[in-house]
Design a protein around this nucleic acid. Structure first.
Length: 274
DNA sequence: GTCGATGTTATCAA
DNA sequence: TTTGATAACATCGA
């Protein structure tokens, strides 16, 4: 499931693969979640050239040469991949962009939760989904992060998942960050000591940075990079989906429960609620 | 064949 | 303020 590290990996891949390439044709296979409309998207993309790629939390911003931007959210199962023209078309491919050099960019999304919207550059920040975002998890500084913690009565798991507070973290990394910081997922944010709050911030950066270094986590074959390669961070996960397995630190079986409406994994001995 | 779980986000109710 | 339920959807495994 693409979270900040996975989206960042895709953004880097697209930046290298897309920049300077002009779209010669666009084919919609499933007209779903394309704004303002599939027709407008096709008409707007054909003839345009990609000039750069940015990431905003879990959103991809594909900048075009005509002062417009294709904003993409992969949600649960979305994939953007580069292909050769003859590559077999995978099931659930919704959109195929063909470049003047013959190569293709394909958007695939099994569960169809993802969306894309073509907007003018000037309007990017006005998209409701982007306007509501808090600072990026990799950019927020410790004092601001600690202040946000102080002001929240939410459970830590819910706090890390709330995109309007700190953006980019999803279920996998929320669990990994809380384990790394030795904080219980149901711990009330404002109840953390200054010392522990600072530790959560440091661990958040460390976990996300290492996950980017490993090209993200590929779980159930969902997320892959632009070239189809899986990430490697799933092999370093310490609690996520390790229910019943021994804690890597103390050997206590990892517990699982639903917290903030998500499957949540933690070590009952290392992560004590206070 | 059915059912539950999967995890992101918007929306609405409490 | 915050939480919980629901809905969007397909796939997999029990």
């Amino acid at each position: 499931m693409p979270e900040l590290p996975e989206v960042e990996t895709v953004a880097r891949g697209l930046r290298a693969a897309l920049s300077g390439r002009r779209v010669s044709a666009a084919r919609v296979l499933l007209a779903h979640h394309m704004r303002p409309s599939p027709e407008a998207l096709v008409a707007g993309l054909v003839g345009s050239t990609f000039v750069g790629v940015r990431r905003r939390a879990k959103h991809l911003l594909l900048d075009l040469d005509d002062a417009r931007c294709l904003v993409v959210h992969l949600r649960m199962t979305g994939q953007l991949r580069c292909h050769r023209p003859g590559d077999p078309l995978a099931r659930h491919t919704h959109l195929v962009l063909t470049f003047v050099d013959g190569g293709e960019l394909r958007w695939r999304d099994v569960r169809r939760f993802g969306w894309m919207e073509l907007v003018a550059h000037a309007d990017v920040d006005r998209l409701p989904a982007l306007a509501a975002l808090g600072p990026d998890a990799l950019e927020i500084e410790a004092p601001d992060f600690v202040a946000a913690l102080r002001g929240s009565r939410r459970a830590m798991k819910a706090f890390l998942l709330a995109q309007d507070v700190v953006s980019g973290i999803g279920n996998i990394y929320a669990d990994e960050i809380l384990f790394g910081a030795r904080v219980h997922p149901r711990q009330v944010a404002a109840g953390l000591s200054a010392r522990r709050a600072a530790r959560v911030h440091a661990v958040m950066r460390d976990v996300l940075t290492r996950a980017i270094g490993a090209q993200g986590s590929s779980i159930d074959g969902q997320y892959v990079a632009v070239d189809g390669a899986p990430g490697a961070f799933q092999f370093q996960l310490q609690v996520y989906r390790r229910t019943g397995q021994p804690c890597v630190v103390c050997g206590t079986p990892i517990r699982r429960a639903v917290v903030a409406a998500r499957g949540t994994h933690w070590c009952p001995r290392c992560q004590v609620r206070r």
